[in-house]
């Protein structure tokens, strides 16, 4: 295929990606070093209240934004270097915490709190998702053929459901007087509230994520199981391999490329954990990196969006995903290079 034809085919797609992915990235990078603030001025205001005999008048200095000719608040944009990063990272507090050896208090700072949760969430759910997905795939493969269709249908539901709605569905089961909380209270005889402390909320989030993603792993493993080489399996049986050894040494190595694939997708998707925070309304206890940026971008009570801090936190989020993905990406790169030649 000539370059011009190739460019004509790929052009629109590349253009969209440049305009809406690459350029915004550059913009975020630049914005994170800038700050846009309303221009403020100090004016002397005299306020008078009617009093006995004479009015009581006070003059005070007020800081108000300058209104431009078009009736809007005038703003200035300044380069401010790493100031936004500093206010997101709050390194001074971090060093102080390390100095006084109270490591726990680092986790009081929003960014570090979010980082801790996001990383733990991504890395802890990864083996769970792969394990549960593999078990479901093995058991479905074991089931009667006629039942497999309906089982796959039911299994797909958690995967396909809108993430916010999925987490809300679980939230409603456990909320104050929800059915499962009531059940647990009856068993334990104590008063339980699942959303009053961080660790129970986090536990439910782990459950939600595994519930939501395991079907995806299951479907892929299930497809992989259909292509296991029966000859290898039979020779393993003849060599006297037990069921567990066959799984360990024949089936899992066969599925290895799929496991890497799922790990890659899971790292990408789980690192941007966000909808759970909205669904479980956990922002008081548990937040994630993406939620942090979202929170900066939502206008506050005065209608201002903290764009520069959002950009700084977005850049830091991006650094994290790059680190997480180096290993699986290199592997994919090698595989494709190997396949191409």
């Amino acid at each position: 295929m000539k370059f011009r034809t190739f460019a004509a085919f790929v052009g629109p797609s590349v253009l969209m990606m440049v305009f809406f992915i690459a350029l915004p990235l550059v913009s975020v990078f630049l914005e994170s070093f800038k700050v846009t603030q309303p221009v403020m001025q100090q004016v002397e205001v005299e306020t008078c209240t009617p009093g006995f005999l004479t009015q009581t008048c006070t003059t005070e200095l007020k800081t108000i934004p300058v209104i431009g000719a078009d009736g809007k608040v005038e703003t200035t944009t300044q380069w401010q270097g790493l100031q936004s990063y500093r206010s997101v990272l709050q390194m001074d507090k971090v060093w102080a915490a390390i100095g006084s050896s109270e490591i726990g208090s680092i986790l009081q700072i929003d960014f570090w709190k979010a980082l801790r949760f996001t990383l733990m969430y991504t890395l802890l759910t990864l083996p769970l998702v792969i394990g549960v997905g593999l078990i479901i795939a093995l058991t479905v493969n074991n089931a009667t053929r006629a039942l497999r269709g309906p089982i796959i249908f039911v299994s797909l539901l958690p995967f396909i459901i809108t993430p916010v709605i999925g987490s809300l569905a679980i939230y409603w089961l456990f909320v104050g007087d929800g059915i499962l909380t009531a059940m647990m209270e009856r068993w334990s005889g104590t008063n339980i509230s699942m959303f009053a402390q961080a660790w129970t909320v986090e536990l439910l989030m782990y459950f939600y994520r595994v519930w939501h993603v395991a079907p995806f792993a299951f479907v892929i493993f299930y497809a992989g199981l259909q292509t296991v080489n029966m000859d290898t399996l039979e020779s393993a049986v003849i060599d006297g391999a037990s069921r567990w050894q066959r799984l360990r040494h024949v089936i899992v190595p066969h599925l290895m490329p799929l496991i890497v694939f799922i790990a890659l997708i899971h790292l990408m998707d789980c690192y941007r954990v966000f909808e759970e925070i909205v669904g479980f309304r956990s922002q008081a206890h548990v937040i994630s990196l993406q939620w942090l940026t979202f929170d900066f971008l939502v206008p506050d009570d005065a209608g201002n969006r903290a764009i520069s801090r959002a950009s700084a936190s977005a850049m830091l989020t991006m650094v994290g995903i790059v680190f997480l993905l180096i290993w699986p990406l290199r592997r994919t790169w090698r595989d494709h290079r190997g396949g191409a030649h």
């Binding site: 350029l23 915004p24 975020v28 914005e31 966000f274 993406q290 971008l297």
Partner: peptide, 8 residues
């Protein structure tokens, strides 16, 4: 992450 892009 999508929030990175939306910030842009």
């Amino acid at each position: 992450p999508h929030s990175v892009l939306v910030a842009g």
